[in-house]
């Protein structure tokens, strides 16, 4: 039963991995290549491009902008998204079912359209473009993903745990604080990290609705337009390492949830 077909599937999976990893591995390799160009041959080892990148003042101010925005987006979208996840999972009746679906609608609209619409709206109502407007735009973009993250665990949540807590004398608020929230914490934390990363690496909304500063993607976007300086490769490589670290932080939980299914929960 397990033979020829699985060869095909295994090969496809291996090919997918090669496809996924090669570009990012390559960019990391060339980030320490002595040649200025993102091209063969490999001429030697250097950390020059990293020191170029890190000695560029614009990088540090952009990093600050990006982190400020991403932290704000992560905090807001995690709060709103977690709350809304409860609506998705526990809302009954046609009204709340419809509302639940509407909550995901930003996923079906191109980010660029959202960016353009927000720019027009902010200018029309006279809201000055800046950190606040980018945070708003990124929050609209990132929150549906946070909701999905929390919903994934909430769907498997055993509501009898709430009943048990109430039975043992906990009020509704105490039940939420001491039972529901701690059990959901891993997926909420994952949602927060996801919200941070989505905002941190987003370019279009920041480009349309941000003025007076550059986020890292905005800066790197303008840098790479002038013949792709090698410091962009160093940046890419650092981002890959950073995201890998963040994902390692986020994933043990998500993967346990995905791979093992509901088995480890409750009973």
């Amino acid at each position: 039963m397990r033979s020829e077909r699985h060869v095909f599937l295994t090969v496809m999976t291996a090919a997918m991995l090669v496809f996924s990893l090669t570009p990012l591995v390559l960019v990391s390799v060339f980030s320490v290549n002595a040649s200025r160009f993102y091209a063969f041959p490999i001429t030697g080892l250097t950390l020059q491009w990293y020191s170029d990148l890190l000695s560029d003042d614009r990088i540090w101010s952009s990093l600050l902008s990006s982190v400020l925005i991403a932290v704000g987006v992560s905090a807001i979208s995690t709060c709103m998204g977690t709350a809304f996840a409860f609506v998705v999972v526990r809302g009954t009746g046609r009204f709340w079912r419809t509302a639940s679906v509407l909550g995901f609608i930003p996923l079906a609209v191109p980010v660029l359209v959202l960016a353009a619409a927000l720019q027009v709206a902010f200018v029309e109502i006279g809201l000055p473009l800046g950190y606040g407007t980018v945070i708003i735009g990124h929050t609209i973009f990132a929150t549906p993903f946070v909701v999905l993250m929390v919903v994934a665990q909430l769907f498997r949540y055993d509501w009898r745990l709430d009943a048990a807590a109430r039975d043992l004398g906990a009020s509704a608020v105490e039940t939420f604080r001491h039972v529901t929230l701690p059990i959901l914490m891993p997926s909420i934390r994952s949602g927060a990290i996801l919200g941070f990363l989505l905002s941190f690496n987003e370019w279009a909304i920041a480009f349309f609705t941000g003025r007076g500063f550059n986020t890292l993607p905005m800066l790197v976007y303008s840098m790479q337009r002038n013949g792709l300086p090698p410091s962009v490769l160093a940046y890419s490589s650092l981002i890959v390492i950073f995201v890998l670290a963040a994902v390692l932080l986020l994933l043990p939980f998500v993967l346990r949830m995905l791979v093992r299914g509901a088995a480890q929960e409750t009973t």
Binding site: D158, R160, D167, L168, V179, T267
Partner: peptide
């Protein structure tokens, strides 16, 4: 339920997965 002088042993127990044995018993 939290004000009633009753306590329930739930079907499949509904033990709190994030708490250990002593913490489960101490919860109430």
């Amino acid at each position: 339920p939290n004000k009633r002088p009753t306590a329930t042993v739930f079907q499949d127990y509904a033990l709190f997965p994030h708490l250990n044995v002593a913490e489960n018993i101490a919860f109430g």
